[in-house]
Simulated assay, not measured.
Amino acid sequence: MYCSASTIDAAHLALATQVGTEIADRGWQLVSGGGRVAMMGAVATAARAGGAHTIGVIPRHLVHREVADIHVDELLVTDTMRERKQIMADRADAFLTLPGGIGTLEEFLEIWTGADLGMHDKPVVVLDPYGHYRGLFQWIRELQTLGFIGKAALERMTMAASVPDAFAALRTSS
């Protein structure tokens, strides 16, 4: 799960809560960035409330900034962001990206690139019901038109406008 650890917008927090609830309802586990604030915290709290096993992976230097979620079933504290991302990638069966900032974007692009390069075959889904990534994906389509991104790369990622669509893509791909 990649998402914001900073926004307090009610609609985004409700989306994160809905995603966490859906994870629990499906009997899945959550692997997240280990923060207890904003969307990251809302997903984990809702997943845990529904009985899902939660794993948080957080770099030592973010333990206080993102307020480490001490209620997760497993809290893994790493020395670096690179270690965090590797552990999250290794422990996850699929990747779901919600709205977020540059950190979320960086994690999504890295995992999508890895899928395109054949480094993993796990589903990569972006849930964007509010058009948060509209400009990004317009630019990506332009890059495809110019020949910088191939059709196969675009097919390795699913864009979903609703929670049911996102989870259908995760289910059918995994």
Rank of each mutant, 00 (worst) to 15 (best):
Y2H: 11
C3M: 12
I8Q: 15
A11S: 05
L13S: 10
A14P: 02
A14G: 04
L15G: 07
V19C: 05
G20T: 04
A24P: 06
R26L: 08
G27S: 07
S32G: 05
G33A: 09
V37D: 04
V37E: 01
G41M: 01
G41A: 06
V43G: 07
A47V: 05
R48F: 01
A49C: 10
A52E: 05
I55Q: 03
G56I: 13
P59K: 02
L62F: 09
L62P: 12
V63H: 08
E66P: 08
V67P: 14
D69P: 05
I70H: 01
E74Y: 11
E74S: 10
E74Q: 14
L75G: 12
L76C: 05
V77M: 04
V77S: 04
D79K: 14
D79I: 01
M81I: 15
E83I: 13
Q86C: 13
M88C: 12
R91D: 10
A94W: 13
G101V: 09
E110L: 03
W112R: 04
G114K: 08
G114I: 00
A115F: 00
A115L: 00
L117A: 00
H120E: 07
V125L: 06
V125M: 01
V126D: 03
V126M: 11
L127Q: 01
L127S: 06
D128Y: 01
Y130I: 01
H132Q: 03
R134K: 11
L136T: 10
L136R: 10
F137S: 06
Q138I: 05
I140R: 05
E142F: 09
Q144C: 14
L146H: 15
K151G: 03
E155S: 12
A160Q: 13
A160L: 10
P164E: 02
A169V: 13
T172M: 06
S173H: 14
S174V: 13
